[in-house]
Amino acid sequence: MLVHPQFNPIALDLHGLGLPIAIHWYGLTYLAAFMLFLFLGRRRVLKPWYSSTGWQAQDFDDLLFYGVLGVILGGRLGFVLFYQPELYLAQPLKIFAVWEGGMSFHGGLLGVIAAMGLWAWRRQRPFWQVMDVIAPCVPTGLACGRVGNFINGELWGRAADPSLPWAMVFPESGSLIPRHPSQVYQFLMEGLLLFVILWWLGRRQRPTGQIAAAFLLGYGVFRFIAEYFREPDSYLGLLSLGLSMGQWLCVPMMVAGAALWLYFGRSGTQPAQTAR
């Protein structure tokens, strides 16, 4: 049985040098996520079926800006609406207290979809083509986020059999119960495995929309599985059918992903040419 090392959440404290700056590990994981998004995206647009439609590496600079806004605004609003609407309805000013924590992946996803839709409209590019380009670049960012969760000792797992070799005690949970390191499970499934699958699917030209559909389906499945090992939020617990809020939010993702994969596969629409 292992014990979480309780890392210092501050990676670099410059107060001793007279600078009012403290760099947190979580901030560094976000920075790594954005840098990986840029690196992988610039490689994606070199594919001939994208470069021939006018995609350029510089497009990802703007895409990143729009994506960051979508993640932050959508993630925060998603947490407010999906997880604690009563609290924020009673105290609406707390919506802006982002330093207290509270972000939702599913809300962030909706925010990114909206942001990419706006970018596609402004650039006169097909929406599903844009989503196909960015989809394989997202899981590495999710993996970085789970690393941050593990370093902070948050979002720990449910109780595990003490004989499990990697069962871990999270003192941050307020108990000495051995738990599943669910952050690691999510890092491996939603991060690395999903990235490998999407990057492999994107190695050749596919009908427009299928890569984005694969992301929806793949993330939904992996997150649904991981939630069986993750401790439910204390203020929600388990909901209908013994499922967590995270699992219920994954259901429409899985349904939409499977339906869109079949739809785009049957339509056989190839990456569209951009009007110039």
Rank of each mutant, 00 (worst) to 15 (best):
M103C: 12
G108T: 04
G148F: 03
L69R: 10
Q6D: 14
E86W: 12
W199Q: 14
S182A: 13
T208G: 07
N152V: 07
H4D: 04
G75P: 10
G54C: 00
Y83I: 06
A115P: 01
P85R: 08
A115E: 03
G257F: 15
Q56Y: 01
V80W: 10
R158H: 02
I10F: 05
L87A: 15
V112Q: 11
G242Q: 00
L38K: 05
P92E: 01
P207M: 03
L89G: 13
L14D: 05
L164D: 14
T269L: 10
L69H: 13
Y219R: 05
I177G: 03
T29L: 06
A115N: 12
C137E: 04
R122P: 11
W128G: 01
A214D: 09
T274G: 04
L239D: 13
H106W: 06
Y235S: 15
F65E: 14
W200H: 09
F37M: 09
A213D: 12
P48C: 08
F264G: 09
Y30P: 00
L217F: 14
Q56R: 13
P162K: 03
A90W: 00
V130M: 09
F222N: 07
M168Q: 10
L77A: 13
V221T: 02
G237Q: 07
W166F: 14
C144R: 11
C137L: 10
Q91W: 05
F105A: 04
A120P: 04
E172C: 02
R266M: 12
Q56C: 08
M35E: 00
Y26W: 11
K47W: 09
A256S: 15
M245D: 03
L89V: 08
T140L: 15
A33N: 02
L69E: 06
G145N: 03
L64V: 14
